[in-house]
């Protein structure tokens, strides 16, 4: 593996990760049903690597990202960060790890407190982790704003004075404030205009280089993931159905869902393209998932035995994993 030397431990390793949300039902005495947002996910991210996580809304990709930085408590499973299982740590013990992992959110409007100045938004994490005070704190805030292409005097302003792209830069400066090693980027560009997207993506690339960051890059825009990620995992209904290095995944998608997902991307200059696989119907409700393979209700290869067992991820080529009964298992 290119990113993982022999005997080297990955920075992040996830085993059997699950998050079930109780959903209230109508009726006073009925028990809440469980929504299986993430249901048994395994993967690792090597130091310095960017793992892309793609899938449609409701597939559990954002929940996975939030679980990693413990914005949600997992229902089951392990999250090993630098060798230590942080899933079970108490909040106090977890604090030093939280400094090492940060998050950039999708919505640049909802993720910044409108009553705080930009300086306080970026500086808050410095206070919490006791990293800088007084003049040092101010200098650090100015340095961070400079890193993301904003001016030092922007520190005195409030979020509403900034455009979407600038707000996303503030969110990035906030994530970088504590010198993290690992950053979860949850759809960081999908709320931005095309011309601004490229600015932010280039900046994420530069920062990765400068600080040796490791990213989990969550997106539904498959072309941007292709540009930014080293390896890509595809999620469907709370499970990873395929994972491979990006060249391999985009050139030889094996899981029928990945194939459909890739062929569904509208291509510039693609008018009259006849080869698109159009999936029938909608994603089933995660409250009431199908038996066996979760994708079988929309799969063109589905057979009777797909209803019996949910296939496990199998290595079908070096570093290329897929969960489909057509590949044994």
């Amino acid at each position: 593996m290119t990113f993982l030397g022999a005997g080297e431990k990955p920075l992040v390793e996830v085993k059997g990760l699950a998050k079930h949300f109780p959903v209230r039902q109508a009726g006073l005495l009925s028990r809440p049903r469980m929504l299986r947002a993430v249901d048994g996910v395994d993967f690792f991210i090597a130091r310095g690597e960017t793992l892309g996580l793609v899938g449609e809304s409701g597939c559990g990709k954002s929940t996975t990202g939030r679980l990693l930085v413990r914005l949600y408590e997992p229902t089951a499973g392990q999250i090993r960060f630098d060798g230590v299982d942080v899933a079970g740590l108490a909040e106090r013990e977890f604090l030093p790890y939280r400094r090492r992992m940060q998050m950039i959110f999708q919505d640049p409007y909802a993720s910044l407190n409108p009553r705080m100045t930009v300086g306080d938004i970026v500086g808050e994490a410095l206070d919490i982790h006791g990293l800088a005070r007084g003049k040092g704190r101010l200098e650090r805030v100015h340095e961070l704003l400079g890193r993301v292409g904003l001016n030092p005097d922007h520190a005195m302003r409030y979020p509403h004075e900034f455009s979407g792209g600038q707000r996303q830069r503030i969110g990035i400066a906030r994530a970088l404030a504590v010198d993290p090693e690992f950053v979860v980027c949850d759809e960081p560009i999908s709320a931005l205009d095309v011309s601004i997207q490229a600015q932010v993506v280039n900046m994420l690339e530069d920062l990765r280089e400068q600080f040796g960051l490791t990213y989990l890059f969550i997106a539904h825009d498959l072309s941007m993931v292709r540009h930014l990620a080293d390896r890509v995992g595809v999620m469907y209904l709370g499970r990873i159905v395929e994972m491979a290095p990006k060249e391999e995944l985009y050139a030889h998608p094996q899981h029928p869902y990945t194939q459909a997902l890739l062929s569904a991307i509208p291509v510039i200059g693609g008018q009259g393209r006849g080869s698109r696989i159009v999936l029938e119907g909608d994603v089933p409700s995660p409250l009431d998932p199908p038996s066996g393979c979760l994708f079988r209700t929309r799969c063109r290869y589905a057979e009777a035995r797909c209803a019996e067992e949910n296939p496990a991820l199998t290595e079908i080529a070096p570093r290329h994993w897929a969960a489909c009964r057509r590949f044994g298992a």
């Binding site: 011309s195 601004i196 490229a198 600015q199 941007m224 292709r226 540009h227 060249e247 510039i268």
Partner: peptide
């Protein structure tokens, strides 16, 4: 031209090449 260059997979096809953003804002 700028809009198209800013898109991954249109202006750039080779690996490792950077996107070309349009500087500034509308």
């Amino acid at each position: 031209m700028g809009l198209l260059r800013a898109l991954p997979g249109y202006g750039i096809r080779r690996r490792g090449q950077r996107l070309v953003p349009i500087p500034g804002s509308p």
